[in-house]
Design a protein around this nucleic acid. Structure first.
Lengths: 141, 141
DNA sequence: ATAATTGCAAACAATTTGCATTCAG
DNA sequence: CTGAATGCAAATTGTTTGCAATTAT
């Protein structure tokens, strides 16, 4: 809830139009927490079966540029979209594929180091760290 | 330099065969520093034009499992291969796309935190951090 | 000899593009 | 009305698979 007028306004400010598809895609991202374009499309199609995956791709791209959603590449295939407020770092286990979410603040010290040494502004919420999770580390320590 | 006998031995230990293709792919990864399968294929084809990209994919996968090369997903499309010894963290600028390499040790503090709090063993060299680089940060601070 | 490896063509998955149609303002 | 947005089909990109031909040992 919350977003319908905000989206309409943001679009209108830039001469863009409000459409049911755009609302549905944003709602889907919000409801799913984080999901691939494919999953988002399926969720949207529960309500509006005619919506094409091309439109989902275009809309995700738009919402991303508007700063309403963000995406992360978790390593393998499709990227993972979530609403902008939903900030976290993804820990991807490269053995079992599991993805864990942890608060961005674990990266705070590194963010400082990178800024000081390399002038690089880390975007912690748009990020996946790879390694092996607790379970998998046990098996082959 | 270095690898011809090492590769032959490693393969032989596992009942696998030494072939010119495998040597050429490993050499290409070493010479290019870090590159996509496509780029590696092109480099190999300078010497052996008949080598197929399918073989490059299969060989990279093999070398990866043998621990001789590693790959990183830099965000967008194709993954990036480099030789195993070549350890570094990639800083990917999500504005201009530039990739900078910095020593893994900048992540040491985070590695400790993740291990202690979440039991997650971070693999720092198999990693890309996204953010904005010095140049791009200047433009829109 | 013979099992591993390669090349090729075709299949696949994820994403993008061109264009005619539809629709929000 | 009119340009922006959508749907559809086809093109692209990156990667994998099946299989017959080749080759290292």
């Amino acid at each position: 809830m919350g977003g319908q007028q905000a989206l309409r306004r943001t679009l209108h400010e830039r001469g863009m139009r409000m459409t049911p598809q755009r609302q549905l895609v944003l709602d889907a991202v919000r409801e799913l927490g984080h999901a691939t374009p494919e999953q988002i499309c399926q969720h949207v199609q529960l309500t509006a079966p005619a919506v094409n995956i091309t439109t989902v791709y275009r809309t995700l791209d738009l919402l991303d540029r508007l700063g309403l959603v963000r995406h992360t590449h978790l390593g393998h295939g499709a990227p993972n979209y979530s609403v902008d407020e939903h900030e976290h770092v993804h820990l991807v286990c490269h053995r079992c594929g599991r993805v864990e979410e942890v608060p961005c603040e674990v990266l705070a010290p590194v963010g400082g180091t990178l800024r000081d040494r390399y002038g690089f502004e880390l975007d912690a919420s748009h990020l996946a760290l790879s390694g092996s999770c607790r379970e998998c580390s046990k098996e082959t320590p």
